[in-house]
Amino acid sequence: MDYLIRNAMAADAPAISQTIINALRQSNVQDYSSEIIDQVAQNFSPMAILQLLAQRQMLVAIVDNHIVATASLDQDVVRSVFVDPSHQGKGLGKHLMKRIQSIATNAGLNLLRVPSSITAEGFYASLGFKKVRDEFHKSERTIIMTKTLGL
């Protein structure tokens, strides 16, 4: 599969929003209630994506001229790693995470943290992240995981 990973741009906001919402509604629904999914989806409107672009380094993966995945780095925290369900299981998430880890290493970071969904815990564990603790925001469970870089 041919793909391109690049820095996200403001013009990408609608496509990033749609990719995230597709993943939430199709993949995360197995682990979270529709109320939690709706609440989280509100954080990823195109306008919200534009605000996030100003706060963190955001990447996109493009296949056939369409954005199909995204990931971002906010200081030492990996955030918003989502792959459109039609492209999951093809290695795009791993490629994005490899790029994120490279950016973090080049910035001199020794540790990456990720607030993982229940759905993505196995994915991050397969990349060497270890569970530190669970956090709960009302009934939404997030798994805090870390990975030491450079080992």
Rank of each mutant, 00 (worst) to 15 (best):
N22A: 14
H66S: 15
N65C: 10
I16G: 02
Q57R: 10
Q88K: 11
A10S: 12
P46C: 11
S33I: 12
S33H: 05
P85G: 10
Q57E: 14
Y32H: 08
I62V: 15
D76E: 12
P46T: 09
H87V: 03
K94N: 06
S72L: 07
D64L: 10
G91R: 02
Q26W: 01
I21P: 02
R25P: 01
G89E: 07
S86Q: 13
E35P: 01
F82R: 02
N22P: 00
K90N: 02
A48N: 05
I62R: 02
A54N: 12
V81F: 02
Q57Y: 00
A13P: 06
E35R: 01
V81G: 03
V63M: 08
H66P: 04
H66G: 08
Q18P: 00
A13G: 05
R79N: 13
V78E: 09
R56Y: 03
S45K: 01
V60G: 09
N28I: 07
A11G: 12
I20G: 03
V29E: 03
A41Q: 05
L24S: 06
S17Y: 04
Y32V: 13
Y32G: 12
T19H: 04
I21R: 08
L92Q: 05
P85V: 09
R79P: 00
K94T: 15
V60S: 08
A54G: 10
V78N: 09
